[in-house]
């Protein structure tokens, strides 16, 4: 930035506008922390994605890992699985979270404080307990869920053994785990919608549905953008659920990109390939996030 450019801008400052430096000052801690702890790891990982360990030596292979990735059928399988989970689970979960947040905020719901907490509990559950728990619940022979299904005359479901049902199991587990998370974000945002808007609408004779559609939803738009983008990123990086529930099986039906990355890095010690997967994933996330931002902003206008 040149000083000649700065000059007119400074003069244009009117009373009530912030000094140019202010936003940078607010961002300063973040910039320092990123410079200290993020720049090196990200560059290192990028460099690593161009290498391969050959006979114990880290060797530069150019875009070799990316080329290999482009023709790796397991990667495409993982990508497809991840996208299927993404397009089914994220709308389901966010829809539920939205309704929940509205309920949590409504005087119609009794014992609100209790239920808010109840839906939050799963987020805190440790991974080990989570794994044992769902294996206990979804076990096809003596799992609780099949026991209940049979007791009402329904057939047993091969929760983890069938490629489709295994995905369904992952989606159920994810929804159980994270719905409360999004509901909390919506609930916080709901608080910023002025109560007068609802009162005015009620006086104008708007139905509950109209109030939801014309006041609640637009008011929640920033939170919706946030949760859509975050859930998308979280699902594209999905690791925990397939790791503890299905180990990516049966026959890779629930293998996700996150799991494949972990396997390559920490099981096969191929950190070069794992880094390449990481950067390709980042690229995919970047494209999807841009589309989402564009789409959500357009609707906002």
């Amino acid at each position: 930035m040149t000083s000649s450019k700065l000059q007119p801008a400074t003069r244009r400052r009117w009373r009530g506008s912030a000094p140019r430096l202010t936003p940078y000052l607010f961002l300063l801690p973040v910039l320092v922390l990123f410079a200290g702890f993020k720049v090196y790891p990200y560059i290192y990982a990028a460099w690593l994605s161009l290498t391969k360990i050959i006979k114990g030596q880290t060797t530069f292979v150019g875009l070799g890992n990316y080329g290999r990735l482009a023709t790796d059928p397991i990667f495409y399988k993982a990508l497809t699985n991840t996208l299927i989970i993404l397009v089914t689970q994220v709308p389901l979960m966010l829809g539920l979270a939205l309704l929940l947040a509205v309920a949590f905020n409504s005087t119609l719901l009794r014992f609100r404080a209790f239920w808010r907490t109840a839906y939050f509990v799963p987020i805190v559950m440790g991974l080990v307990a989570y794994g044992i728990l769902f294996s206990t619940l979804l076990n096809s022979h003596h799992g609780l869920v099949n026991f209940l299904l049979e007791s009402v005359g329904l057939p047993r479901v091969p929760w983890l053994a069938d490629p489709v049902w295994a995905k369904v199991s992952i989606i159920i587990a994810l929804t159980w785990h994270y719905t409360g998370n999004s509901a909390v974000i919506y609930l916080a945002q709901l608080q910023s919608i002025p109560g007068e808007l609802y009162e005015a609408a009620e006086i104008d004779g708007a139905t509950a549905w109209q109030r939801f559609w014309h006041i609640t939803l637009p008011g929640l738009r920033p939170a919706i953008t946030l949760t859509v983008v975050l859930s998308t990123i979280g699902t594209l990086q999905l690791f925990d659920e397939p790791y503890v529930l299905t180990n990516g099986g049966p026959n890779n039906a629930t293998l996700t990109i996150g799991m494949y990355l972990y396997q390559n890095g920490f099981k096969y010690f191929d950190f070069g390939y794992a880094s390449a997967i990481g950067y390709v994933l980042t690229g995919i996330i970047g494209v999807i996030a841009l589309v989402q931002f564009h789409f959500l902003r357009e609707r906002q206008a």
Binding site: F34, Y42, I233, G258, L261, G265, Y279, T282, G286, A289
Partner: peptide
Amino acid sequence: IVLVILALPSQVT
């Protein structure tokens, strides 16, 4: 940059 940091899985770094 914030989004990129969010997007790259932590296992890689």
